Simulated scan of single mutants.
Amino acid sequence: MKHAETVTFGGSNLDRAAEMRGVAEAIARAKADPSARAILMWRGKPLIHRTRPAALMRLPMDHPACADANADTAIFLGREDGSPRFALDLSEWEPDHLDPSKLGGFLDPTEQRHPSCKEDEVFAELRRVMTWLSPRDAELAATTRAVFSWHDTHGFCAKCGAASTMTQAGWQRTCPACGAHHFPRTDPVVIMLITRGNSVLMGRSPGWPAGMYSLLAGFVEPGETLEAAVRREVFEEAGVKVGAVEYLSSQPWPFPASLMFGCRGSALTEDITIDPNEIEDAIWVTREKMLSIFAGEHATILPARKGAIAHFLLENWLADTLD
């Protein structure tokens, strides 16, 4: 797929400068560099300038908002045009008049502003604003969110259970008790454009907003190829057998930390038998009907969300640009 990396969170050629992560002196110099900037995250929400197109904020390391983060847990993201970039987590900061019941929704509409930031500089849900960002901003935000999410859930050694510490400038956790090293986790997921003739297979999960359908997807199991995972997941969820499978494109998906492998496959059978433990419904949608859905003209089915790889794959299928 010639334009595979144009998917949201696709490659922006960020220099991650991995060779610096284990060199404490180099990281200290980078933090003190006048051109260094911090990407701020609050409970999974990046700090953005919310005008359209939005911009991911890059604050000086001595900005007052950075004082509410623990500097010892800064993650070194790499170099941008030669200048160091770090990520800081402000999750311990408590905004005034915060209503926790409004947080964490599918597309959380709430925004939080730190008192030292300007009016249009707010923390916003990444799912909601991901298509507003440039490729570089999206990559930085996705990386920051995914790595902090991993630290939040991996504070203890998986080998002996002792509390671990952040090392390698945020890209590793080390157990002081047994010496084990742990690295940020990324879960491989296949998401598949399954076609039969002029139709594509779509499904929906329980709890999704009304009318929302997407491509089928599932986690890759240990010892399994991407092709085998596609065939297994489609048969498990919809009872449809798949023949030829081809890889198309990938997308980092930091909710919390997956790598989506977009594939296409040719269905060998048409009858659908869903597993209600996996999905709520599955349907075949013709190309003509999908065009109507994408145009927002269908009465009951919504188009796949912009920014998600499902939308990207379907859009290219409709335009005959998958190859």
Rank of each mutant, 00 (worst) to 15 (best):
G105M: 10
A38S: 14
Y247S: 09
E227F: 10
A38N: 12
S164I: 13
A71E: 14
P206A: 15
C263K: 03
L322W: 05
T269A: 07
T195E: 15
T186M: 05
A257F: 06
M260K: 05
M166G: 11
F106N: 11
C178R: 06
A308L: 14
E119H: 11
P252Q: 02
F235W: 09
E236H: 11
T144S: 12
Q112H: 14
L126F: 15
D108C: 09
L40K: 05
D271T: 15
F255W: 01
M166F: 12
A124S: 12
T131M: 11
D33L: 00
M260R: 00
Q112V: 11
A228H: 15
F76E: 02
D89R: 08
F156D: 13
L314R: 04
R85P: 04
P276E: 14
A26P: 00
P252I: 04
A217T: 12
L313N: 05
A163S: 14
I309K: 03
K45N: 14
R50T: 11
G223H: 05
G223E: 02
R231G: 10
R136H: 01
G265V: 10
D96K: 13
P84L: 12
E288W: 01
W132F: 10
W42Q: 00
P84N: 10
T153C: 01
A162V: 09
M202V: 07
M212L: 15
T273M: 12
N198E: 14
S12H: 03
L103W: 09
K241Y: 04
F86G: 09
A36K: 05
T73P: 02
E278D: 08
V240C: 07
A18N: 04
W253H: 12
V245H: 02
G155Y: 05
P188K: 11
L248F: 01
T195Q: 14
L216G: 11
S91V: 10
S91L: 08
R136V: 07
W284T: 14
S292P: 00
M130H: 11
F183S: 07
F106P: 05
T51H: 14
G105D: 13
D68E: 06
A146I: 02
P209E: 13
A319F: 00
S83M: 11
P109M: 09
P209W: 08
A299T: 13
E119L: 12
G197Q: 08
A267N: 09
P252V: 03
R232F: 03
L318K: 01
D89L: 06
L77S: 06
D99Y: 00
M61A: 09
L268S: 08
W132P: 00
Y247A: 08
A162Q: 12
G44D: 02
L14F: 06
F312L: 04
N198F: 02
H151M: 01
G207M: 11
D15L: 02
D108W: 08
H114F: 02
D120S: 06
A257Q: 03
M57I: 13
